[in-house]
């Protein structure tokens, strides 16, 4: 009995090996995607979105088809995914692929032609002048303190002193006697970069008490700690404050931290959320860009706590 079973097994074992061989590449491919290293093979040998029909004059007769590929900032990606869903609903033969990996990846993928658009959540650098940036929304960053903190505002010098650990007590910056707890962001976060460049700080110089991963965590950290100060996206802070979370948004100088001040360009600590591309766009890519910038997606933009901009 046992021997008979043993003998029939090798055949089965080959099947198993074969199956592993099939499962393995599949699994590697999916894992590669989620960790944002690989593009689908077809994306590299065939420029994305070029499969569009030439007849652009009559989109009804000749519906858009093909693929739009966007890579880059994980800040922008969720917004683009939502807008892409609407675009795909209107154009069933179009697939929009969104992959994250940071603004730097967006820039390099566009240059190499493996993506139609790079999602870049900062201003383009001078050496990136070969690319064109299209602003789709804006993100303002402000300092927040606990709602019970009596400090009305913080000057640039005071913020610098606090984050450099030169001031350790609130009474030195116009508050009541209490230790200062600084809430900082993790390396690579867009809000961190805007904060550092606005205050001309180096990350090495900062000795924070708490490091938060995202805006929500920073807000919760400040709301749960009467001594804390942090900086977050204005949209997110406004929404939380409206819900009654115990935080207060500090103005920058005289300018109140509000979404409308960000939209009108008055608030200083701001970053643009952009799609960058080379100067020539495929018909499909330009149709997608026009759709994104049509001004019809303010609901989606506000749901991500960003500030819509006039197209």
């Amino acid at each position: 009995m046992r021997l008979a079973h043993g003998r029939c097994l090798p055949g089965g074992t080959w099947g198993i090996l074969l199956m592993t061989l099939v499962v393995a590449p599949l699994w590697m491919a999916t894992s590669g995607c989620s960790t944002s290293t690989t593009l689908p093979a077809s994306a590299t040998d065939q420029p994305a979105g070029r499969a569009v029909d030439q007849d652009q004059a009559d989109p009804v007769a000749m519906p858009l088809q093909g693929r739009v590929i966007l890579t880059g900032s994980s800040t922008i990606a969720p917004l683009i995914v939502e807008i892409a869903k609407r675009f795909e609903a209107q154009h069933p033969q179009v697939r929009v692929e969104v992959q994250t990996g940071g603004s730097a990846r967006g820039v390099s993928d566009v240059r190499q032609g493996t993506a139609d658009f790079g999602m870049v959540s900062r201003h383009l650098k001078p050496i990136e002048g070969d690319l064109v940036a299209y602003e789709i929304a804006r993100d303002g960053i402000c300092l927040i303190v606990h709602a019970d903190n009596p400090v009305p505002s913080l000057s640039r010098e005071q913020v610098l002193a606090i984050y450099r650990d030169e001031v350790a007590d609130w009474k030195d910056v116009g508050g009541s006697q209490a230790p200062v707890v600084t809430v900082h962001k993790a390396e690579g976060r867009g809000t961190l970069e805007v904060f550092l460049s606005h205050f001309e700080l180096k990350n090495e110089d900062i000795h924070p008490d708490v490091i938060a991963g995202d805006n929500l965590q920073a807000i919760k950290s400040v709301a749960g700690n009467p001594y804390a100060v942090g900086y977050v996206s204005i949209g997110a802070a406004e929404a939380e404050a409206r819900l009654g979370t115990a935080i207060r948004l500090l103005p920058a100088g005289e300018i109140a931290a509000t979404s409308s001040n960000v939209a009108e360009g008055r608030f200083p600590m701001v970053r643009p959320l952009t799609l960058v591309a080379r100067d020539s766009l495929s018909p499909l890519a330009s149709a997608f860009l026009a759709f994104v910038r049509s001004g019809q997606h303010t609901d989606l933009i506000e749901a991500q706590y960003f500030v819509p901009v006039a197209p």
Binding site: V181, V210, Q217, S221, G224, N225, Y227, A228
Partner: peptide
């Protein structure tokens, strides 16, 4: 974690900041 952040952390913060 959310419970920890909104209950435990403020409680520890009263003993010694930052609580986290």
């Amino acid at each position: 974690g959310l419970w920890g952040l909104s209950e435990v952390v403020p409680w520890i913060n009263r003993m010694q900041p930052p609580g986290q």
